[in-house]
Design a protein around this nucleic acid. Sequence first.
DNA 1: GATGTGTATCGAAACGATTCGACGAGCTTA
DNA 2: TAAGCTCGTCGAATCGTTTCGATACACATC
Lengths: 357, 357
Amino acid sequence: MEAPACEVLQTFYNRGEAANEMNIKDIAKISGVGISTVSRVLNNSGVVSDTTRARVLSVVKKYNYVPNSNARNLKKIQSNTIALMVKGISNPFFANMIKEVERQVHLRGCPLMIQQVEDGVDEVGAAMQLIKEKNLYGVIFMGGTYDHSEEEFRQLGVPFVLTTITTLKDVDPSAFSSVSIDDVQSAYKATSYLISLGHRHICFLARFPFRENTIGSRRLLGYKKALEEHGIEYDPALVEDCEYAPSFGFAAAKRLLNKNLGVTAMFAASDAIAIGAAKAVLSSGLSIPGDVSVVGFDGIEMAEYYHPSLDTVSQPGVEMAHVSVEILFDLIAGETANRHVVFESMLVKRGSSRKIN
Amino acid sequence: MEAPACEVLQTFYNRGEAANEMNIKDIAKISGVGISTVSRVLNNSGVVSDTTRARVLSVVKKYNYVPNSNARNLKKIQSNTIALMVKGISNPFFANMIKEVERQVHLRGCPLMIQQVEDGVDEVGAAMQLIKEKNLYGVIFMGGTYDHSEEEFRQLGVPFVLTTITTLKDVDPSAFSSVSIDDVQSAYKATSYLISLGHRHICFLARFPFRENTIGSRRLLGYKKALEEHGIEYDPALVEDCEYAPSFGFAAAKRLLNKNLGVTAMFAASDAIAIGAAKAVLSSGLSIPGDVSVVGFDGIEMAEYYHPSLDTVSQPGVEMAHVSVEILFDLIAGETANRHVVFESMLVKRGSSRKIN
DNA sequence: GATGTGTATCGAAACGATTCGACGAGCTTA
DNA sequence: TAAGCTCGTCGAATCGTTTCGATACACATC
């Protein structure tokens, strides 16, 4: 997939003029008012007579003046910037959520800073750095598993929300806000469904990093719980570790099929994995759902347009993103009670699973 | 897909302490040096004796001091922030590029601000606003069609790069840098391929907004050119307008199939469209490539794992993102020559097209 | 000893906003 | 008429940096 770069043009470039030449002082002088009056007009704070307000606004408009946010943030010791710390920007499920977060934050007039947290880096520490540096307004953490202590969160010093992040061990819920689904219950639901269709050899594909309490391990709990309740013995050989992307799902499913364990159903902890797994099944000459039933997780659009359309445990990603921003801005507005919103996941049946004998 | 929120907990929340209590003055005092010395140490500017440097750094580390970037940016009249203006964050092809942009920008120690530009808004104006407000370091524009004049670009006043944006009419290439592929040639390549396989009734699916010179219209040019060169008459009925998402591709392909025009091949201007179109074909009981050949555009992972794997015109998105950031930072570093890098697209044959009589 | 040349450091003056205490003009009220 | 109040406005101080001119010392040179 390497493609050579090809230089088509090499021409001279003249750096333009300074972007913003006007400052509040200039506006004040031109308007014939004091500096603080301009400030009050722009911030709708304090009293300003209507005529003065109109005069100032017309000058602001005429010169296309935009206040310098660095100066403002410096003085107020608080910027209006929101940061989004996210694991896996390119995962379609997150991409959709990010889109909504951006939309909602933007709607509230705040710029959004996005930082990707690679696996293994200390996301809260990274956020801490940004907060100190930029005097952020608030932070949304999205995706992953957090092992941070109550104290670490407390030290952030600005409002924050944990979205689709597995609940932390030993952290007082009053110390943070969160938006999530019940992963255990959701996986339980999907697995139970497959069992109800008569499946006994159901494999489970998810990511199991070294840490405890990850999304993968929580969904595994639900999977196990369903098996147990129906008297099916848990077989570790049916569980494959794989990252949340089609290529990994493909490889994992291939490995599973090669084990010849008589698998009749596959449950993947993400649609991306499910799509890869489905491909492995189909390209092995097996059919879905004829030979193998497949159920994914997330509810991304691509799963619906796969052929066959894939069953999935759908999360209301857009709503979750929306609520995350709402909670964050409530906290910023002074709300003191942390909230924990747990959304309901939905088992969407599209025909990639079928009843067997 | 509506899911009801469920409040699980409502508990008290205590806003933490101010995030950053230390400033450069404190560090100077504690270190027993002057303010400017601390500044010089932190910025590696000017001369500082090794012993002083070590002493200051130890204090900085001890108190976990992070300089306030608002103050720095204010003084320097330049922040180190890069902004990415992007159309369609959730398009998997862009999502992948965004990921790389973030990685590369972050690697260079700069925060990244992302702003989504909805269809129809003035992206350059929005960037202008941000630049004035934040004294940005540079801007990357990604995706879409820009109708802005040379003057408008010149006014931005900071380095910028246009990535995967259709070339502008009447704008001197020396006024901007760009990273792209040759859309006309790429579409020509795909269409020619289908023609070489014997197809005569090839439909084309893309987005054609009101504006001229969009990605869709440029790819249409390539499509037409191929038809013309092979003496096939262009039939507007074979061209469908549809947005870059599976659902729209699905609907468009359905419309086409219902026209009964004897279509044997579909060329979509994006893989997302192609996946939707393929679904329409398959769910109509037709086979791919048996009855209809399908070729997409972009080279997203999902297209490879579709069943059948979809042929596509692949763009080296990650490299393009990488080079965009490189060019941007070259410009920031003082490079005065604008560059226009045109990447080579690649026709990837995976078996969703076949030779016909 | 007067002068020149580095080297390491210092402090004051910005940068462009917000905000608080002050103030003048125009009222009412005693 | 003086005192008290309100309304609208003003300017100085401040936020935490960077940076430039000044300075202080050590040492070499004449």
